[in-house]
């Protein structure tokens, strides 16, 4: 297994599949009411969060605790981090504490890469700036597999603010590794220049959501911040919702079996309407549950499993 999980590109198809299979096994065990496994007893997992993300932190914390690891939460608020201690100094502190794994969420792209060069333990990227969020992609792939039976051969549309989305980057990389066909959809202003060659030669780009929907198995809606309109990425939230939002009418263009995903947190009424988010196609609640199993698998494989 790899040492760090910094990017979804760190995983080849074999390793990615191993994570998903392991997550399924762990979920089955949890399902049998054995809440705690002794696997990581005596190991220390640090959650180092420079951004507020209660849901991701809780998910990692639950994953580590179910594997019997000692968990230390190190959040930017109320610690020396907010007093301006450098990432390197924090890394050296974690090193001295004997952290076996550091789960890091950071507003700067690449911060986990820097951290990995300063600590001996494993580093798990829990979201860095506008770069990547590989465990989110893993839990999304896991969710697709459990709903649709496979990932290879699926056509997945990733819709919205691809430019600023770490979820989109990790998903494109992981899904193409696993043999899915991926189309990113959004206004041209929110699709990175050269995104195809950057992420995958097979990546498709479309600016027309209605044209893409009838052909997809999965549509993944990304969060779009209203403030983007202040930088002229789009004229208004209303126009955005009209062209790229998923409402009930548009949802009817999807094939019968297609599912609707969202990494959360949602901006209801912007990229997704409540009736879509709460529909039977929506996997949003499952995604949260699957997150714990997938993160258990990642920690297990990076730290102990081999």
């Amino acid at each position: 297994m790899i040492k760090h999980l910094l990017s979804a590109a760190d995983l080849d198809a074999q390793h990615a599949t191993l994570v998903l299979d392991t997550a399924a096994e762990l979920a089955a065990v949890s399902g049998r009411e054995v809440k705690k496994l002794p696997t990581l007893r005596g190991r220390t997992v640090v959650n180092l969060f420079y951004e507020d993300s209660t849901r991701t932190r809780i998910s990692f914390e639950a994953a580590a605790k179910r594997l019997s690891a000692d968990v230390i939460n190190f959040s930017a608020k109320g610690s020396s981090v907010s007093k301006g201690e450098s990432l390197k100094d924090t890394a050296l502190t974690l090193q001295a504490m004997g952290a076996d794994a550091v789960v890091v969420r950071h507003p700067a792209s690449g911060a986990p890469h820097r951290l990995a060069s300063w600590v001996d333990g494993s580093v798990v990227n829990a979201g860095d700036g506008t770069h990547e969020h590989p465990t989110q992609a893993l839990l999304d792939a896991y969710t697709m597999r459990s709903r649709l039976g496979r990932v290879a051969g699926l056509h997945v549309a990733i819709v919205g603010d691809v430019l600023h989305s770490r979820v989109a980057r990790s998903n494109v990389l992981l899904l193409t590794t696993l043999g899915a066909k991926v189309t990113v959809v959004g206004p041209p202003t929110l699709i990175p220049v050269d995104v195809g060659p950057a992420l995958s030669p097979d990546l498709r780009v479309s600016y027309d959501l209605d044209a893409v929907l009838p052909d997809v198995d999965v549509v993944m809606m990304l969060r779009v911040q209203r403030e983007r309109m202040n930088d002229s990425f789009f004229p208004s939230t209303r126009e955005y919702a009209r062209r790229y939002g998923l409402d009930a009418t548009r949802m009817r263009r999807l094939p019968e079996h297609a599912i609707v995903m969202h990494p959360g947190p949602m901006v209801r009424g912007m990229e997704i309407t409540p009736e879509v988010a709460d529909s039977a196609r929506s996997t949003i609640v499952e995604q949260v549950a699957n997150g714990v199993s997938v993160r258990m698998a990642v920690l297990y494989l990076l730290l102990g499993g081999k």
Binding site: S109, G110, G129, H131, R166, P192, A198
Partner: peptide
């Protein structure tokens, strides 16, 4: 630089 690498690294171009 805005291009392939910035798109991959998630750094503003």
């Amino acid at each position: 630089h805005e291009g392939e690498v910035s798109a991959r690294l998630g750094l503003t171009g």
